[in-house]
């Protein structure tokens, strides 16, 4: 038998743990709120007309905006979506429709969970060897491929989760009418899981749009407009932030980096909040 502890000590321990946990939550929230406030406060002051309309200027010229980087980030992100979404959806279909209880399905599921945790810088190196080294030029397209590879396992897993929620009776009734499997999947299962799928895709977009490390090895950055997407280094927000924040002594450039940081934060928060509301409505 264990020795009986006094009720006073037990209650003391319990209360002190409660206090510690409330305090830590406050500390945690405080720091994170601090970061967000700094980004909003500092970033907002650099927002003005030319910030959104002009291209970045070469090193040391204080005026100019980041419009080319905004456009470049949009190109790269949508390129990534175009490359990454179709195989992601198909992979998710395989896991939920064909590989639900098979050993291969389990293995792929496990691998995609592992792949989601592989550092993004590794993906950058990988795409560098595939596309930059072979074509001898950094390009926005290579950046898109890198981001698509990061998105891919995320979409596979969310698609699978969303499709698994669709009741089997729906599939069975469609198949009983003689509908082919692919038609059942795309027009019956997909339709009832629509919101969930959109949520998953948006979340994966939010996740890659703040990535920096893979772009350092693929898209790099430039001061020009991103119209040579396939053959030239392409301007983008995150690498511009890196350049302006670390390699520049000028306050104007730091301010622009904060502005770009705020822009990305707002975009990602909006995407996430949209997803949450969408998903909640779908659940109702």
């Amino acid at each position: 038998m264990k020795k009986k502890k006094s009720i006073f000590l037990r209650k003391l321990k319990n209360n002190s743990m409660s206090i510690i946990s409330v305090l830590s939550t406050i500390i945690g929230i405080f720091f994170l709120a601090w970061i967000i406030t700094v980004v909003f406060k500092t970033g907002f002051s650099s927002f003005n007309w030319s910030f959104f309309t002009q291209a970045t200027k070469p090193y040391g010229i204080p005026d100019g905006g980041i419009a080319n980087a905004i456009l470049g980030t949009l190109f790269i992100t949508f390129g990534a979506a175009a490359i990454g979404i179709p195989p992601g959806l198909l992979g998710g279909i395989y896991l939920s429709e064909f590989g639900r209880n098979s050993r291969l399905g389990d293995m792929i599921r496990f691998s995609s969970n592992v792949m989601m945790g592989i550092p993004s810088i590794i993906v950058g190196l990988f795409v560098y060897t595939l596309l930059v080294y072979t074509t001898k030029t950094f390009s926005g397209f290579a950046g898109s491929v890198a981001l698509a590879i990061i998105m891919f396992p995320v979409i596979v897993r969310t698609t699978e989760d969303m499709l698994s929620m669709v009741p089997n009776q729906l599939r069975e009734s469609a198949l009983a009418l003689g509908t082919p499997r692919w038609k059942t999947t795309f027009s019956i299962v997909f339709r009832s899981a629509k919101t969930g799928l959109i949520t998953g895709i948006l979340l994966s977009l939010a996740r890659v749009s703040g990535e920096t490390a893979p772009l350092l090895f693929t898209a790099l950055w430039s001061d020009s407009w991103p119209f040579n997407f396939f053959t030239q280094p392409t301007a983008n927000l995150t690498v511009t932030i890196t350049e302006y924040a670390t390699n520049s002594p000028f306050d104007e450039m730091h301010a622009k980096a904060w502005g770009a940081a705020l822009l990305i934060t707002i975009a990602i928060l909006c995407l996430n909040i949209t997803c949450r509301t969408l998903f909640k409505e779908a659940k109702k």
Partner: peptide, 15 residues
Amino acid sequence: AAIPSIIFGMWGLFV
């Protein structure tokens, strides 16, 4: 959890 890491890096550097 969705805030990109570069934001944390900037906050770290400047603040």
